[in-house]
Design a protein around this nucleic acid. Structure first.
Lengths: 244, 244
DNA sequence: GCCGATTTGTCCGTATGTATC
DNA sequence: CGATACATACGGACAAATCGG
């Protein structure tokens, strides 16, 4: 339940667009009208509209107005820009998701592991190897590393449930942001064995480094996705002085 | 050359972070200090900071401050959220990019093409089949479709140069936004023939639908990327009432 | 081509809420 | 508890783009 006003306005407008209350490919009411209708300030409305633009619901044009460009059939299942655990995204998409721990261990970062993960060599880590199933099909294989000094007390039993619930609920860690990189890699024998790849020999790999409120990267996770079920969506905006 | 003040502030701060003027993993000066130093209003500074957060340069924490989380070695080559032509991104990364037209034709959307692209069946289209090279290596194969009534007058000769320069410079089309989806697909015989795939049989596919200022989708492009050179970066932010 | 009305884009100042220390 | 810091919200002003007369 969002409590910020601009988030409420975002959802109000998003629902009106999705329900067809605003005609497709037509202009929405002007800012002035919406401000009067929604009883808010211009800045607050504009913040909600900015989120609609980012999400690909409307496009704005100076001097003309804002246009509804929502396409019902093609909206996202995965979204960029937000952090979700597997359990959370499964729930959001009304999927039946289960997970299985294949390995849990304490390890020390050697040079090659340090280079891959971004942790300093010698860092003490928990290693969690998980397989995520959607409707009984193995879809994602995760190799996760957590700093022992941040995620201390993590056990295999906790990992069977929800690691994030433990980190946030028990240890009161504030998860702030996560840098992610999407690549395509050759499948390893492990991938082929566990992910029912058919005759594909590559998969989508999402590598993420997650930071807590103290600015320390405490988690590195490599998610190896079955190619048939990997889909990321993005809405790009053309600007003159492009922010790069 | 960005002219908006918040864009200038964004680049000033970004440069200070990249050059190490702000110590890594430490807090930046508070908003109050930066406002005095940069001689701007609070809203304008916050807008610049919001872009830094999106780009993964800083994380903000209510009551604490904003922390520098820039990692020199791991910054993006490709970025999400902005529209760039191949020529533009090659120039930005100081690459030597060339392109070759493999086919140029006028086609009419049948049912299967309409379903794939999102155009209505019967729409008159230009079809452009291009291969993009980076330092003489074939990296991206593009299948593009443009509405004839929007991109009218497009020729093979123009496509040899730059399609976007023609659309924006000659036809004065305003390119507003582009919805993109990233998936992984099995390589076709065409992919294997032209992209020097080695023993990989999958590739990264970016499908994009681009809209002009009249709200009409005038372009559908499917970019098929050599897996070794595909890399997309994203920075996700954890929120309580996550905007979905 | 010009002018005025409309609409979005940018910027500012201020007040209040909330989390941290 | 108070001081500090970021988060949200409001209102006003001007700039820039669009459109119609």
């Amino acid at each position: 339940m969002p409590k910020a006003k601009y988030e409420q306005l975002y959802h109000i407008l998003k629902n009106k667009i999705e329900s067809g209350e605003y005609p497709p490919h037509e202009l929405l009411p002007s800012e002035h009208m919406l401000i009067a209708e929604l009883n808010c300030s211009r800045n607050t409305l504009r913040r909600a509209v900015a989120e609609l633009v980012r999400a690909g619901y409307v496009q704005t044009m100076q001097g003309k107005g804002m246009r509804n460009i929502f396409e019902p059939a093609r909206q996202a299942t995965f979204t960029l820009g937000t952090i979700e655990s597997f359990a959370e995204s499964a729930a959001r998409n009304h999927w039946h998701g289960t997970s299985k721990i294949l390995d849990f261990a304490k390890v020390t970062a050697d040079d090659t592991l340090a280079h891959m993960t971004g942790f300093a060599p010698g860092t003490l880590l928990y290693y969690v190897w998980r397989l995520h199933y959607l409707n009984e099909h193995p879809l994602i294989m995760n190799h996760s590393y957590f700093r022992q000094d941040v995620a201390h007390g993590l056990t295999r039993e906790i990992a069977e449930e929800s690691i994030y619930r433990y980190l946030e609920g028990e240890l009161h860690i504030h998860i702030i942001n996560s840098k992610r990189v999407v690549t395509v890699e050759k499948a390893t024998p492990l991938d082929l064995q566990y992910l029912a790849m058919g005759d594909c020999n590559c998969l989508a790999v999402v590598s993420s480094q997650t930071y807590n409120g103290d600015g320390v990267m405490f988690e590195y996770t490599q998610s190896r996705h079955h190619p048939d079920y990997f889909r990321f969506q993005d809405n790009a905006v053309r600007r003159s002085g492009s922010i790069v």
